Simulated assay, not measured.
Amino acid sequence: MFKYYVFIFSTLISTITSGKVVVMAFSQEIPPYIYEKNNKGIEIDIISSALAYKGHTLKPLYFPLGRVPIAFSNRQVDAAMGDMGVNLALKGGFYADPAVIYDNVFITLKSRDISIKNPSDLDSLLIASFQGAEIRYPDWLQKVVQEKRFFGVSDQFTQVMLLYLRRYDVVLSDRYIFQYFVDQLKLRENFEAKEVVEYSFSDVEPADYRPIFRDEITRNDFNLGLKKLKESGEFQKIYDRYMNL
């Protein structure tokens, strides 16, 4: 508790100093990480709090996931939540430490009896995924894309429905995002949850989830704030607020 109040006090002191408004590109709605309507969520709260440590104010702008790096490249924003596999250092970006790390897995209906251990196991299967996954995981998805069996969609609720309705065979999603939307569906009348199977297919690479800033000093301020968030315990508290609902 004492560490928490020290962090808040330090943040207030820092706010007195000159900070800037940081316009950052985020994906549209990705609960529990991003709630577009009220500018909340695990990822937004962590980034906002880390920037606030040095007096900066976060202003989110929302785009379809695949357009996040484009918004940065076109100088529509000061920062981006991630690069979606595009090297934004070439566009003047400074990479920061990751605020959150997505745990992406292949998900299938257990009743389909599909096994995924190698890229060849995806042959003939239809894959619904978040936008940019084809860039992030070319070894697994290149053939799927070439054969037009890949559907990248920014609305990840749609992914769940496509799998449950058997329109697509496999969903590639962060496991927490997928479970969030399943839980939302459970609140509906006459909805019957279906058992699914998850297949981990790639080691999590934290570097894939680094925010990017146009200004090096702001990037450094963010990294320091993120470090202080973790040391104070507030980082975990933000996660707990959303994951223990």
Rank of each mutant, 00 (worst) to 15 (best):
P31C: 04
I114T: 08
V6A: 04
N118S: 08
N118W: 01
A89Y: 03
M84A: 14
I101P: 06
E216N: 10
L126M: 15
R166G: 04
Y137T: 01
G55M: 03
A99Y: 12
D123A: 12
Y180Q: 05
L125W: 06
A133D: 15
G132A: 15
V144C: 12
L126H: 09
Q76E: 13
N118I: 05
D221L: 11
D240E: 11
A207K: 12
S18V: 08
V22F: 04
D45W: 00
Y164K: 10
D240Y: 02
R149L: 15
Y239D: 01
E147C: 09
E29P: 00
L126E: 09
F157D: 05
S49F: 00
T17A: 14
R166E: 13
V153S: 00
A80N: 03
I13S: 10
K117H: 07
L141E: 12
L163W: 12
I70L: 10
I217V: 13
G82F: 09
I127Q: 13
I217E: 14
K40G: 14
N118A: 04
I30Y: 00
N244G: 05
Q179R: 12
K59H: 14
K110M: 08
D45G: 11
F130I: 07
Y53W: 07
Q236F: 03
L58V: 04
M243T: 12
Y164T: 05
S14R: 07
D121H: 08
K230F: 06
V86M: 03
I13Y: 04
V100E: 07
N190P: 11
S129Q: 12
H56L: 01
Y102W: 12
P60E: 13
R167T: 15
R75N: 14
E43N: 11
S14D: 12
E29Y: 02
Q236G: 01
I47G: 04
D183Y: 04
S73W: 09
G82C: 07
T17K: 13
L61S: 03
Y4Q: 08
T11C: 09
F181Y: 15
Y102F: 15
F157W: 04
F9K: 10
V182I: 09
K91W: 01
P69E: 10
N220D: 07
F235I: 01
E192K: 13
D113A: 10
I107N: 12
